[in-house]
Amino acid sequence: MPEGPLLRFQDVNTYYGDLHVLKDVNYSIASGEIVSLLGGNASGKSTTMKTIMGVVRPRTGSVIFDGVPIEKMSTADRVKRGIAPVLEARRLFPRMTVFENLEMGAYTRKRGPEFAEDLERVYSLFPRVKERLNQVSGTLSGGEQQMVAIGRALMARPRLICMDEPSMGLSPRFVEQVFDIIQEINRQGTTIFMVEQNANMALSIAHRAYVLQTGKVVLSGSAAALRRDPAIREAYLGELQVIPGQVDTDSPPVSSRIRAPVAPP
């Protein structure tokens, strides 16, 4: 195992034309972690994911995966190195079957015994997927689509999965199930970087988290500390007011530095 984090952002600045979206962003994600990325709408969460995948490129700064700068690499090369996405709103190929979607997940890999093993792994995590293999994926329910989207990422046998709002549009009970499975995947050895609006759930399974606000990292730390932070509680955990006296003193509040995001969930 190489020294240092699995994924690192070094002073990354990403633009869409003139629109400056990520501003001197730094992340560091160690192998084996679940790291959550929180932030309001339009704060640059999905742009972070796209910058990792190489769908947009940073104008300055470096993205380092496993010790190697990847910011100039093609998306295909990044996938081959072991990064796989679970995209915002799932983005299955709607007119392809469930099985074909899983095959697309393994696109960069050779067909062989490993492919069969990975299929079995997906089936054991999501028995429901196995029942739907020949169904056209556009006709699946939202929850089923999310299972296929996660399964599709696993088919790449990735070291890092980048998830963009895996809980979006799912019923609370199902969200819990998905998060259990994310934890299980992580226990099996895959590092997870996860964008979430559902901060409560995200912080309950994440080891650490970053908070993004209009393209800047305004807060980061262990999930436990962030859960106690009054600003976070107010902005993301659905609590209107926190009495300062109730704050746990071993994690000093950082609330003075951040404002609530434009549109709290």
Partner: peptide, 14 residues
């Protein structure tokens, strides 16, 4: 087919 249905997602599959 994947590219025709969602070019960006296809790209992210490699």
């Amino acid at each position: 087919r994947a590219t025709a249905q969602d070019p960006e997602a296809a790209r992210m599959m490699g």
